[in-house]
Amino acid sequence: MAVSKPKASKATPKAAKTSTRKAASAPAVAAVAEAVEAKPEVLPATEQAPVAPANTLPAVVKKSSKKSKAVVAEPAAPTPAVDAKLETNLAKQPPRALNSPIRIFQIYFEPWQRELLDPAFYPLDNSRGSSELMEFAVFEQLQKNAATQGAVLWGALSWRFGEKTGMLGADWVKQIVEHPGHDVYFCNPHVNNEAVFHNMWMQGEVSHPNFVQIVKAFFAAAGLDDKEINAIHPSNSFSAANYFVATPKFWERFIPFVRKTLVTADKNLNPQVRDLLHSKVADDKGLHAGATYVPFIVERLFAYFMRTEGKDLKAFKIALPERERELNVHLKLLREMKDVAHRTQSAWLAACWVNYRNLYLSQTNSKAWCEKYLRAITPTEVRFV
């Protein structure tokens, strides 16, 4: 994926937090394990990346995580059809974006959220939206609607855009205008993930129960290359929250790619794994309105698409100065170390990064968190995408 990235501003330290939660039920996990063939690969002795002990990192404080109740898997329902109300409303009252070459919509669900919307974007009421696909369902509807016809670039962002990015809409648009000629503009509001995870698939393991196992089963069923799940990705490919604005050319290829992937996976998945995929176990922390695993997989497919079917498209990653300032010295060094390892294809440096990363995580998280996640997010081999 051809990506340009502007320089970020100087940062000041701030420690990262991660919570620990109970995983999905044993039967569900067993079903996933049966559906995915384990293929353990071990590094030569010089490339092993053992879990480092907690001991000597300076100026980093340990933080314990809180426990919460486990969430029981619910029977899966078929993926709901996209909500027709949104398209009808847009057709009757096209937003003022209709005559603009760059049309960025901001999705909201409650009346009070409208007051928090950015004036540079166009309010989009999705209070009646009920699709399991969440933002992706809005993308599908907007692509077919008159509101996006004739636009050079368009996209739909969350009502929490300002809170998550620390950026004004006008500054976002300015970045786009100042860097013309790209097919898609995106960002990653969670820059700390770029420093401590191999990729966004591994990051999902600490956010959603048994995420990696479910993703491996999903990839196998959808016919995708699962090698990237354990591979080291450069920081300029990290993306989260569906924060991207793109050309019609991008949308005409990305939307069918995601839809085909979902349909193929649903058709070929083991029934028990498919039920788990569409269950609310994915949102065991209750942070995403009871979302299933589907939207969390879909948002991570963006980077996969850009490395495969969309590899000829040009991407520009917008830097987020406020988020960059939150990185402490260790996170900045870890991110740079991983990027250099990726750029030079150095397995030795990648193994060094893993050891430093594990040492950092062991001092910024509880012992229970480390015992639960460190090995799960540490592949036994070094691989680069």
Rank of each mutant, 00 (worst) to 15 (best):
V71C: 02
K66L: 13
A84R: 08
V82P: 03
K67Q: 15
A59N: 14
S65W: 00
A70N: 06
T56I: 10
P58E: 06
S64I: 11
P58K: 13
T56W: 09
S64M: 11
S64W: 10
E87L: 15
L86K: 00
P75D: 06
V82M: 02
E87R: 04
D83A: 02
V72A: 15
D83N: 12
S64N: 14
A77V: 13
S65P: 00
K66M: 12
S65M: 01
S68H: 10
K62I: 14
K63N: 05
K85I: 01
K62E: 15
A77F: 10
T79N: 04
T79M: 06
P78T: 05
P78C: 04
D83C: 04
P75I: 06
T56L: 11
K85H: 05
V61Q: 11
V71G: 00
K85N: 05
K67S: 15
V61W: 10
V82A: 08
P58M: 07
T79H: 00
A70E: 08
A84N: 05
V60A: 03
A70S: 15
V72N: 11
V82N: 03
V71N: 02
P80G: 02
P80Q: 07
A84P: 02
P58D: 10
A77R: 15
A76T: 06
K63I: 03
E87T: 12
A70Q: 11
P75Q: 06
T56C: 07
K69G: 08
K85P: 00
P78V: 04
A59I: 06
A73E: 15
A59S: 11
S65H: 01
K69I: 00
V60W: 02
A81Y: 02
S64Y: 12
T56S: 14
L57V: 10
S64G: 15
A76N: 05
E74P: 03
P58G: 06
K66D: 13
K62W: 13
V60S: 03
T56A: 15
K85W: 03
K66P: 04
D83L: 00
T56Q: 07
E74K: 13
V82G: 00
V71K: 12
P75Y: 08
K62H: 15
K67P: 07
L57N: 01
K85Q: 09
K63P: 00
K66A: 11
T56E: 10
A77Q: 12
V61D: 08
P78K: 14
A59D: 14
L57G: 01
V71E: 05
P80T: 05
P58Q: 10
E87W: 02
V82R: 04
V82L: 04
S68G: 15
T79W: 01
V72H: 15
V72F: 14
L57E: 01
K62T: 15
V61H: 13
K67G: 14
K69F: 03
K67Y: 13
S68D: 12
P80C: 04
P80F: 06
V60H: 01
E87V: 12
A84W: 01
V60Y: 01
L57A: 06
A76S: 14
P75H: 09
A76V: 06
A73S: 12
S68N: 12
V61C: 04
A70V: 08
K85D: 10
K62V: 15
T79R: 07
A81R: 08
A76K: 04
P78Q: 09
A81C: 05
S68M: 12
K67F: 14
A76Y: 02
